[in-house]
């Protein structure tokens, strides 16, 4: 009897997940059980409210941290975000992460690649210091090649000087 009700709940959970965020359907398979039990608490599995969902990592915790001009040191706010990222990665130990480093357009192409690498590596080392195994992490720099904001003002530059932690499921899950 218990088995049947669980299957029923799972079906319902997946249906909701599919409606709310079709792209995350595959990711949700990991958290079947948790999702099935938590749906009663009003948490939509796979959503930004589901602590096990990538959407929660990307949006509720925040997948990115920002840097001052020419700097790769972490602000207090960045450290708080990364603490939460580390906690999530500890809980969801089957996820790998690639940390992207980016720079704003004020700088030469070559220097910005190296600067983006410094930023991404700083984030990676911080996550390692918070207990994430180095073999789950990689970093890459895009320099100034991939801005998210395109104006030539500080309002945009401050959003482009960033590192973004891109999570993906490993084979160990």
């Amino acid at each position: 009897m218990k088995h049947i009700s669980k299957a029923f709940l799972l079906g319902a959970a997946l249906a909701v997940a599919a409606c709310s965020n079709a792209n995350r359907f595959d990711d949700d398979m990991v958290g079947q059980d948790a999702a099935a039990t938590r749906i009663d608490n009003g948490i939509i599995p796979g959503s930004v409210n589901d602590p096990r969902a990538p959407a929660y990592f990307n949006q509720t915790i925040g997948d990115r941290v920002f840097f001052e001009v020419d700097q790769s040191t972490l602000t207090a706010q960045a450290r708080a975000t990364l603490d939460a990222q580390a906690q999530w990665l500890t809980t969801n130990s089957d996820y790998l992460a690639v940390i992207e480093g980016h720079a704003d357009e004020q700088g030469t192409r070559e220097y910005n690649i190296a600067l983006g690498a410094r930023r991404a590596n700083t984030v990676m080392e911080y996550l390692i210091s918070r207990g994430i195994p180095a073999n789950r992490l990689k970093f890459i720099s895009y320099g100034k090649e991939r801005p998210v904001e395109i104006c030539s003002e500080e309002a945009c530059y401050s959003k482009n000087r960033r590192s973004v932690t891109i999570i993906s499921q490993g084979l160990t899950g």
Partner: peptide, 9 residues
């Protein structure tokens, strides 16, 4: 060329 290892290029 430049090679990046860790935070160092």
């Amino acid at each position: 060329y430049s090679l990046t290892q860790g935070s160092n290029t």
